[in-house]
Nucleic acid binder design. Structure first.
Lengths: 200, 200
DNA sequence: ACCTGAACACCGTTCAAGT
DNA sequence: ACCTGAACACCGTTCAAGT
């Protein structure tokens, strides 16, 4: 806050750069993150940028790391008060189709996961979330928590994608609520009880 | 075939360009498609390219259109001989985790779906496939074919993504076969029979 | 310590000029 | 009709020189 004061020849910090970078990502995706563009926005030169960061990738990595940390907290505080595993699952899935800014950014990153630094960030997220989901299913006492976590996360990712792509295919409004409930029941009930559970 | 003859000052066609472009995509994703790079590969100049295509996007669009057509045929011939809807569903899902070159390319495109022209291509694919899936579930006589198609396709997309990202989270080998069977049973049986099916 | 300004490389795009 | 070659714009990166 001391940094962006009007008047003096504005002195920049690394955080100033990750700040505008995140803003750019939220607005126009990774493609909107150009060193030159951000420098223009800040009224600085590209040379200044290279004092704070080794290169564009390093800026993106730092920006995503900060974003991840915030997301983790946001999701945690969203789920913490919920009473049981089932409702956590429900809220988690619903978050994929929400219009929460976090979901928008995440969907955008998904669509740029070929960029190596994004890839790394998403990989961490994937690991953390499938782990969390597995624990949820363990709490629920199902027979095969691991594969349900895989399926659950796959659905999450897939819906995130579909909603970004042709929204026409993905449910909306109250259909959405009904749909999510259905999928959750589905994931929790599974078919482990009627057939044999992955027994050969 | 008459075009790539050795000797004369090689005359290029639009197909020559989409050809190398597809090759480049298979090797290194969309990022590997640079007008300059392809021109180098073909021993031509960038100027030549702009005779055949309006710009890089047009090249990518044409390349993807050709690829889509091929994929459609490949998938169709893969599924046609199968006896029932259930086995088609199984094979379709399995294809997501295969090492079929088509699956590799598709996963790669998914990871570049922010590129508008890729987005358009994937949107067509999404529409076609959820439609096909819906028909499958209708054949299977389930109560809610539409939402199962959505879930099925979401799983397909999600798995494609996960396998590309941190393969560690996605099942492999014989676990994979077991897993796919399980998910299919799951999708087909659903919980529509025990709870109420989206009634309300 | 932090920044500017100019330079270079790479690539997309245009276009006059060639065959 | 199809291609070359040179030009320009845009952006990532480097670096000597400034404060």
């Amino acid at each position: 806050m001391a940094t962006a004061k009007r008047g003096g020849p504005t002195r920049l910090t690394a955080d100033t750069w990750t700040g505008v970078a995140l803003q750019a990502i939220a607005e126009g995706g990774l493609a909107a993150v150009s060193v030159e563009g951000l420098a223009r926005r800040l009224g600085a030169t590209k040379g200044s940028f290279y004092w704070h960061f080794e290169n564009r990738d390093a800026l993106i990595a730092a920006t995503l790391a900060a974003w991840e940390a915030g997301e983790t907290v946001e999701v945690a505080t969203m789920l913490a008060p919920l009473p049981d595993a089932a409702s956590r699952l429900r809220v988690l899935l619903r978050a994929a189709l929400d219009d929460r800014p976090g979901a928008r950014v995440e969907a955008g990153l998904l669509a740029d996961s070929n960029v190596s630094v994004v890839h790394a960030s998403l990989e961490r997220a994937t690991r953390a979330r499938t782990r969390y989901l597995r624990e949820l299913f363990e709490d629920l006492g199902v027979a095969d928590p691991r594969s349900r976590a895989t399926t659950g996360f796959a659905i999450y990712l897939g819906l995130l994608h579909m909603r970004r792509a042709g929204a026409s295919t993905t449910p909306r409004g109250k259909d959405l609520d009904r749909y999510i409930d259905q999928v959750c029941d589905w994931l929790i009930a599974g078919n482990g009880e009627r057939g044999e559970t992955a027994t050969r």
